[in-house]
Design a protein around this nucleic acid. Structure first.
Length: 422
DNA sequence: AGCCTACATTCCAGTCGA
DNA sequence: TCGACTGGAATGTAGGCT
């Protein structure tokens, strides 16, 4: 819902401000035992907002005034808010009807009413305490200067990116994760991946992208590609149409499960499309490793498949590492200190291949017979090390990881990605 | 006890429409 | 011109923490 949609809609009345007595609770007090996923989300939220505890609405419910869900809705509302008139925003530095818009947005999304005054109060608090640059930018942005393309979560596309956002690099959601031992760094790691159209593979696995700590730079590599791509006389898009457009991300640090996907013009790097997706966690094969499945670009994959020249586009994934908690068992492990990790997927020129649709299964269907995973969870075998790395270059030291007291810098790395079979 | 934190409340300056 | 309405800064409040 855009601000315009909302502002022209019916009855948005916030009503009288409710008086609300509060008490302070930690997240554990909310009346249920949070799942691992919820704990992860809460940790991420704490890292972003600086919040250490929640106040709860008094009256028996034990409900947090600004629970993670409500706060997520608030931030979404902030992202979606577009001032109708830029005059007030520019001259006053104010955002007309923003709090009310967010109030209604929160109500729409969560079913729970938070008054505009409460929204304003929370925004004020975020401004004071929040460490996340993305949120600070949303709070303090100039009208139309940023954030306008951020869509709904769960892979909801924004079909009309604003012209102001059509620059490269696009505005990333950044979280400043801080632990006592972390250094704050602002420049993201960037991996460049070429979706090679001339390599071959006989594997049936989805490709893997390794986000190993940069001191282990040689370990960053891409896996093989689904099999059954048949070399015939067609364009790349035909080949794309047969692929399961998913990638396995293997990371040495836990990632925030929300991540952004950008579709950019290869030459101008203008933003064509953006969506926010959820990483799908998969069982790791070793301690200290996180494996996720991602979509290459969900909302525009069909368009890419229909496009005669997919190589004119670049896909960018922006992952945000979670702040690592230093424990006795992991204190010697590397700790990511930057804001985000971006992976760029390039299509490597025109392709003249097409698959046989019935040779490559759509979606993921792998051998689960030898795994102990639940039946709903596909089995992902780790790829053999040998054939993968096709490192083209590694340059531009910009970011750092900490390993004890040692920092190792790393910059942009490029890899070839053999993206289809024979 | 004093400080910290998360939120509510109050106050003020600005816009807008009657 | 004036009152309704708004966002934002300042201030108040209550519970937790040290």
């Amino acid at each position: 819902m855009s601000f315009t949609d909302w502002s022209t809609g019916q009855n948005v009345g916030a009503g009288k401000q409710s008086s609300m007595l509060v008490s302070t609770s930690t997240i554990e007090d909310f009346g249920h035992i949070p799942s691992t996923e919820e704990q992860t989300r809460d940790e991420a939220q704490k890292a972003v907002t600086g919040r250490r505890s929640w106040k709860t609405v008094r009256g028996g419910s034990g409900e947090a005034v600004w629970s993670p869900q409500l706060e997520a809705a608030l931030i979404e509302g902030l992202e979606k808010y577009q001032p109708e008139s830029k005059k007030a925003t520019k001259s006053l530095g104010r955002f007309p009807m923003r709090n009310r818009f967010i109030s209604d947005y929160v109500f729409q999304v969560t079913g729970k009413r938070r008054t505009p005054k409460q929204v304003g109060s929370r925004i004020q608090q975020l401004r004071d305490t929040c460490k996340g640059e993305h949120i600070l930018r949303l709070i303090s942005r100039n009208s139309g200067s940023s954030g306008s393309v951020t869509p709904e979560p769960h892979c909801s596309p924004d079909p009309s990116p604003s012209p102001t956002s059509s620059t490269f690099p696009p505005e990333h959601a950044t979280i400043s994760a801080s632990t006592p031992t972390e250094l704050r760094q602002r420049i993201p790691i960037q991996l460049s991946v070429t979706i090679s159209t001339c390599a071959s593979s006989s594997s049936s696995r989805p490709p893997y992208v390794f986000l190993d700590p940069p001191q282990n730079i040689q370990g960053i590599r891409l896996g093989s590609i689904p099999e059954a791509m048949h070399l015939v006389d067609h364009r790349a898009s035909k080949m794309l149409a047969s692929m399961d457009p998913s990638v396995m991300i293997v990371s040495g640090v836990q990632l925030w499960e929300q991540y952004d996907i950008f579709l950019l013009e290869a030459q101008s790097r203008a933003l064509v499309y953006k969506e926010r997706c959820q990483l799908q966690p998969c069982p790791p094969t070793q301690v200290g490793q996180w494996i996720y499945r991602t979509a290459l670009v969900q909302g525009r994959w069909k368009d890419l498949c229909c496009d005669q020249f997919p190589e004119q586009y670049v896909i960018q994934h922006s992952f945000v590492p979670l702040p690592s908690v230093i424990t006795a068992s992991n204190k010697h492990q590397p700790t990511y200190t930057g804001d985000e990790i971006s992976v760029l997927y390039f299509f490597d020129g025109p392709v003249y291949t097409t698959p046989s649709d019935n040779l490559y299964p759509r979606g993921i269907s792998y051998d689960q017979s030898s795994s102990g995973f639940p039946s709903s969870m596909p089995f992902y075998e780790m790829p053999p090390d040998a054939q993968w790395p096709c490192v083209l270059s590694a340059s531009r030291s910009t970011d750092s990881w900490t390993h004890g007291s040692n920092n190792t810098n790393v910059g942009e790395q490029q890899y070839h990605y053999p993206y289809h079979g024979q």
